[in-house]
């Protein structure tokens, strides 16, 4: 429908992309931000401030002992941290893509590419953390 606004004849701009996609990514951006605060706090405490057995000196051995003490909690926390970090960071990349690229097909392809990159690193990182937890469990038993 053509509307006349003042002396300018203006054609309303159509909606070009499915309306819900931005909603979910915006909501998940907020939720992962909260997740980052929680998981990163636990991660930092675990890696840098928690003193279990060997006094205050931070050594590789001390960190190893922490894995040994809480392998499952550590793995779960860091998988959560990895998930939130990847989503938060890559959604930022997606936002930059949407700012710079206006072609809907190119946006879709690049979004899928970003998702694949995220899923690969999530898979790889999670596998490493789970293997570490399993290794510590078997050493512990």
């Amino acid at each position: 429908m053509e509307r006349v606004v003042g002396s300018v004849t203006a054609q309303p701009q159509p909606v070009r992309v499915a309306p819900k996609t931005g909603t979910y990514s915006w909501l998940l951006m907020r939720l992962t931000a909260y997740g980052l605060i929680v998981f990163l706090t636990v991660h930092m405490i675990f890696n840098h401030y928690l003193d279990l057995r060997t006094g205050n000196k931070l050594t590789f051995e001390l960190v190893n002992r922490r894995f040994y003490a809480y392998p499952v909690i550590y793995a779960i926390n860091d998988i959560g941290l990895l998930t939130c970090t990847l989503f938060h960071g890559l959604n930022g990349v997606r936002n930059v893509i949407y700012d710079l690229v206006t072609n809907p097909a190119a946006r879709r392809v690049l979004t899928i590419l970003v998702m694949l990159i995220g899923l690969y690193f999530l898979y790889d990182g999670s596998l490493t953390l789970l293997a570490l937890a399993q290794m510590q469990n078997s050493v512990g038993s």
Binding site: Q13, A18, P19, G22, T23, S25, W26, N95, D99, R107
Partner: peptide, 15 residues
């Protein structure tokens, strides 16, 4: 209006 304002070219592009 929300269908327009809430599209990818709407509110979500505001940084």
């Amino acid at each position: 209006r929300i269908d327009m304002a809430g599209s990818e070219e709407g509110t979500w592009r505001c940084h």
